[in-house]
Amino acid sequence: MNTMANLSGLAGGVFIGLSAVLLMATIGRIAGISGIVSGLLLERPTGDSAWRLAFLLGLVSGPLALVILKLDLGNVAAEPDAIIGAPAGDVGLMLLAGLLVGIGTGIGGGCTSGHGVCGLARLSHRSLIATLTFLLVVMATVYLVRHQIGGGV
């Protein structure tokens, strides 16, 4: 068992929970990434763009800092010396996957951070159903890709 990776995961989970609580406590907003992004990009300006932009910049600045500083806090890559693993597919496949995720979050009324972290913490029945649906679809997708399509990759 990799203790450092486990502690890094625990610390990451604590920071995700803390950020969700702080966002709710300070401005009364849910830390759902799809809602934050769509509110920033798709909705008319409502005067709350600054916090949305700051949240998203904080979201990407952590991993970028790890890469720039060459810090390894629990390697998720398959290669021992890599900080972040190679993409599983080409750029076109990743763009298609991102588009499908965006469509899915629109249909589902949110994403895993909104439903799984914030909604479950608020004991939302709708978020429980959404999170269970996410998990079942992910498990089915991994099974199909790794054992049916990918030939046991």
Rank of each mutant, 00 (worst) to 15 (best):
E43H: 12
P45T: 04
G47N: 14
G47F: 12
D48V: 07
D48G: 14
S49H: 07
A50V: 15
A50F: 15
W51C: 10
R52A: 08
A54Y: 12
A54H: 12
F55Y: 15
F55T: 15
L56P: 05
L56E: 10
L57C: 15
G58F: 15
G58H: 11
S61C: 08
L64D: 03
L64G: 05
L64F: 11
A65G: 06
A65F: 12
A65H: 07
L66M: 11
L66T: 03
V67K: 15
I68P: 02
I68F: 13
L69I: 13
K70D: 15
D72G: 05
D72T: 11
L73D: 03
G74W: 10
N75G: 14
V76L: 14
V76I: 12
V76F: 07
A77E: 06
E79I: 06
P80F: 04
P80L: 08
D81T: 12
A82F: 14
A82V: 09
I83Q: 07
I83N: 12
I83S: 08
I84R: 06
I84N: 09
P87T: 07
P87Q: 08
A88G: 14
A88L: 14
G89F: 11
G89D: 11
D90G: 13
G92W: 06
M94Y: 04
M94I: 11
L96T: 11
A97Y: 03
G98V: 09
L99V: 10
L99T: 05
L99F: 13
L100F: 13
V101I: 15
V101G: 00
V101H: 01
I103Y: 04
I103L: 12
T105M: 11
T105K: 00
T105S: 00
G106H: 05
G106D: 00
I107C: 06
I107K: 07
G108W: 01
G109M: 04
G109Y: 01
G110Q: 09
C111S: 08
T112A: 10
T112C: 06
T112L: 06
T112G: 03
G114N: 09
G116N: 02
C118S: 14
G119H: 07
G119R: 01
G119Q: 03
L120W: 04
A121Q: 06
A121E: 07
R122S: 06
R122W: 02
R122P: 01
H125W: 15
S127M: 02
L128W: 09
I129S: 01
A130R: 03
A130F: 01
T131Q: 03
L136T: 13
V137R: 01
T141Q: 04
T141G: 00
T141W: 03
L144P: 00
R146T: 11
Q148N: 05
I149R: 00
I149W: 00
G150K: 02
G151D: 02
G151I: 02
G151K: 01
G151Y: 03
V153T: 13
